[in-house]
């Protein structure tokens, strides 16, 4: 592998990342704007954050979003992990084709279709729309993402680890909890994080499936945006971006440090 920078690569990366980050940076900058206009800089101010925290509808929506996110991500992680196990471990069962189709389809399915179909299901069975219907909807589409993440780890999983555990006297169930699960845990955790953020971000499916009293933060932001662009929304967005960015950065830094430590250990071990 060559490891030198070529000029073309540097230029394409700089332009690419500028395109990715400039809009977000501008959004964050203008959340601190003194003026009501989000496009003309009039001095630094944090007043929009203050007004945001006094806006009860935003705070309520934030709570709904977090509750939905935590519950749906957790259930989706369990179901998605089971789904991934079913797909990788049981290569032949009746309806496997249908099952894998149902796992992959939601990844690319336009959200309007998923949202509409879930809404019609809830109406058909007479389930009152509210926070629970949103949660069920979120579990359904996020578990597919979890299944795909966990499945890609299971594909490279060394099955002889499980055989070794059973050979040493562990029953299949013990083997799963003591060997398989700990080894695939990083993938399960990132599956959970993915499910949580997807749930946090979702607008379309939530809009279809939620009912009175169950407005999520993206729904709240969306209805505000339709009325016009205000620095208050910029402030709300900035807080969301900050939370996610800090989480992702911490996770990947920890991951990187672990990898560096592992590489060092392996080098040291090879010298024995």
């Amino acid at each position: 592998m060559n490891t030198t920078w070529s000029r073309f690569n540097i230029v394409s990366l700089v332009i690419g990342f500028a395109f990715l980050y400039l809009p977000i940076v501008l959004l964050v900058v203008f959340s601190f704007n003194e003026s009501r206009l989000v496009t003309v800089w009039a001095g630094f101010s944090t007043k929009w954050y203050v007004s945001l925290f006094n806006n009860k509808s935003f705070i309520d929506a934030a709570w709904v979003t977090i509750r939905v996110g935590l519950i749906s991500a957790t259930v989706a992680t369990i179901l998605g992990t089971l789904g991934a196990l079913a797909l990788t471990r049981y290569t032949r069962f009746r309806g496997r084709m249908l099952f894998s189709a149902m796992i992959y389809a939601p990844l690319v399915m336009p959200e309007v279709i998923t949202g509409l179909s879930l809404l019609l299901l809830f109406v058909a069975i007479g389930f009152d729309r509210g926070i629970w219907t949103v949660t069920l909807a979120h579990i359904t589409f996020t578990m597919c993402f979890v299944a795909v993440v966990v499945q890609s780890r299971l594909v490279t999983f060394d099955r002889s680890l499980e055989e070794a555990a059973m050979d040493l006297g562990a029953t299949p169930v013990t083997t799963f909890f003591k060997v398989t699960l700990p080894v695939i845990l990083p993938a399960v955790v990132s599956g959970w994080m993915l499910a949580f953020t997807l749930s946090l971000d979702d607008l379309v499916i939530s809009s279809f499936t939620s009912g009175p009293g169950a407005t999520t933060l993206p729904m709240r932001i969306y209805s505000q945006v339709r009325l016009g662009v205000t620095p208050e929304i910029n402030a709300a967005c900035t807080i969301l971006i900050a939370i996610v960015a800090v989480g992702v950065v911490i996770a990947s830094v920890a991951n990187k440090r672990r990898e560096v430590q592992k590489a060092r250990d392996e080098q040291a071990a090879a010298r024995h």
């Binding site: 002889s160 680890l161 055989e163 059973m166 050979d167």
Partner: peptide, 14 residues
Amino acid sequence: PYKRPVNMMFQSYA
């Protein structure tokens, strides 16, 4: 396997 009085050393060590 988990009830057999034999133990195996795996090629990959596992």
